[in-house]
């Protein structure tokens, strides 16, 4: 993987997507020793409305730090799906929350969907970990970092009392995505 790989997490402000981006960047750069740059929506854009966090991963040094052609995009809301599916490269990947995104964006990319937020609420018991469910799913979808590397990055970010919850959320997201891809 010498080429740059661009991942975009999008949804509404407050859904934890910036944290998801940071964890993925930590998994790639700190755990796996690749190059990674993370950036995010900033200012009014980041407060409610559509918000995004982008991670660029490469074996080579990363010069231009913003997304140019997105390889894989996550969208947790309709607004984010409409706004941020633009820029996905041909044959790219788009993962949607099937409960919240009813109008599926049209384009030259492969769409996957499952109820990400409902999975967090019902399978894990806490809606707040939807971002970690989504992160697990994006790792499964892109295979850009190993399962273990990102799991380590997740666990090093959360307080001890929440490790089990987040580990379960991450694993569940990963497994659901792998089943979808079969």
């Amino acid at each position: 993987m010498a080429e740059r790989y661009e991942i975009r997490f999008s949804g509404a402000g407050g859904q934890g997507l910036i944290t998801a981006g940071i964890i993925l960047a930590e998994a790639a750069s700190i755990v796996e020793g690749k190059n990674a740059v993370q950036s995010q929506s900033y200012g009014p854009e980041a407060r409610g409305g559509a918000s995004k966090s982008e991670v660029i991963i490469s074996d080579a040094p990363i010069d231009y730090p913003k997304a140019t052609q997105v390889n894989a995009c996550l969208a947790l809301t309709q607004e984010a799906a409409d706004k941020y599916s633009v820029g996905i490269k041909p044959d790219g990947l788009l993962l949607l929350d099937s409960d919240l995104v009813k109008n599926i964006p049209q384009g030259d990319f492969k769409v996957y969907q499952f109820p990400i937020i409902r999975t967090a609420k019902e399978d894990i018991g806490r809606e707040i970990v939807a971002n970690v469910v989504a992160l697990g799913a994006m790792v499964a979808l892109t295979d850009i970092v190993s399962y273990e590397a990102c799991e380590q990055a997740v666990l090093s970010r959360v307080p001890p009392a929440f490790k089990e919850l987040n580990q379960k959320a991450y694993e569940t997201g990963f497994k659901k995505m792998k089943e979808l891809m079969k």
């Binding site: 960047a25 700190i30 990674a36 740059v37 993370q38 950036s39 900033y42 730090p65």
Partner: peptide
């Protein structure tokens, strides 16, 4: 500038 001030790198 705002971009390198806010982006994250190792």
């Amino acid at each position: 500038d705002e971009i390198i001030a806010h982006m994250r790198e190792k």
